[in-house]
């Protein structure tokens, strides 16, 4: 890198200094609660009450980790959660991408009614569906099973809606030219449409995984064996009636965010700044 390039870059950076400042402040605001989790998970719970609160990490990490494993079998429930979230994400993303594409790019009889009904499942508060859905699962004999945790929500209004909106602006001309070349619909979808929609699909996968990973009330209702618990359900048992194991909870929460962060880091690679026209060009 030459000197003049350096100088230009520096000049640009200075001009952008206010923007960096804004982003820095935003980052700090986003990070503080996270840092507090790190601090809390390395202290004893009794250190977390009283004033002043500790601001530096303590030395109780291993003790807390051992207790977390002992109390809620944390390694086991992490694996449970991963399995459930991965299976769910695979099925749900496929269903959402396909349905979103179908609703955005085709017109078929009942399409608008179907889309409207899908939106209604998103508008109705989950709380009023819990009892009848529970009755259904109980009658099939699915209580305490992972299929009961996963299947009812594989079709996700959120995911379908997100994909529909993403595909709306997809150029029809590309689809048409593929058809003229004789490709069938699924091949067109797979070869032409999907590659262009990568960033949106990446976002969908992140959110689908996150939704299942943090899902609490439905797994709580469905799972009746401690060995089958997912992470949020297991962590919830650490909130007692007259005692709450905050340091264990914070450590568990911290560890539970790691898979999400890793997933985000993997998939955000699909977000390339100022993506060129992509397939539109080629």
């Amino acid at each position: 890198m030459t000197r003049s390039q350096d100088a230009t870059r520096l000049g640009a950076s200075l001009r952008h200094a206010p923007i960096y400042l804004v982003l820095l402040v935003g980052s700090i605001i986003s990070l503080i609660p996270f840092l507090w989790m790190v601090v809390a998970s390395t202290h004893r719970t009794s250190d977390l009450f009283g004033t002043p609160l500790p601001v530096l990490p303590g030395g109780e990490l291993l003790t807390n980790l051992a207790r977390l494993q002992e109390d809620v079998n944390f390694g086991r429930v992490m694996i449970n959660s991963l399995a459930v979230a991965i299976v769910y994400t695979a099925f749900s993303s496929i269903v959402s991408i396909m349905a979103g594409y179908g609703l955005a790019k085709f017109s078929f009889r009942g399409r608008n009614v179907a889309f409207g009904l899908i939106l209604v499942t998103m508008m109705i508060p989950m709380q009023v569906l819990l009892v009848p859905l529970f009755q259904m699962m109980a009658s099939i004999g699915w209580i305490d099973s992972y299929q009961a945790v996963i299947l009812p929500f594989v079709a996700s209004a959120f995911g379908i809606f997100l994909m529909r909106q993403s595909f709306l602006d997809f150029p029809d001309s590309l689809i048409e030219s593929a058809r003229i070349d004789g490709a069938n619909e699924f091949r067109t979808f797979y070869r032409i449409v999907l590659p262009v929609a990568k960033p949106q699909i990446a976002a969908l996968i992140i959110y689908t995984f996150m939704t299942q990973w943090n899902s609490f009330i439905w797994p709580l209702l469905m799972l009746n064996t401690e060995d089958n618990y997912t992470v949020p359900v297991a962590l919830n048992t650490m909130i007692g009636l007259s005692r709450v194991d905050y340091s264990g909870l914070m450590l568990g929460s911290l560890l539970a965010t790691l898979p999400l962060l890793i997933l985000f880091l993997i998939f955000q690679r699909q977000f390339i700044a100022g993506l060129l026209g992509g397939a539109v060009k080629g």
Binding site: I94, V95, S96, M98, A99, Y101, G102, L103, K105, F106, S107, F108, R109, R111, A114, L117, I118, V120, T121, I124, L129, P132, L133, M136, L151, P152, F153, V154, A155, I160, R179, E185, F189
Partner: peptide, 25 residues
């Protein structure tokens, strides 16, 4: 003539909704 593929694309989702949400709703 390209109406039907759209339905095929949406079918898995619509079937799942019908199965799991018709009764609760």
């Amino acid at each position: 003539k390209l109406q039907r593929p759209g339905l095929y694309f949406a079918l898995p989702a619509l079937a799942l909704f019908a199965i799991f949400f018709a009764y609760p709703l």
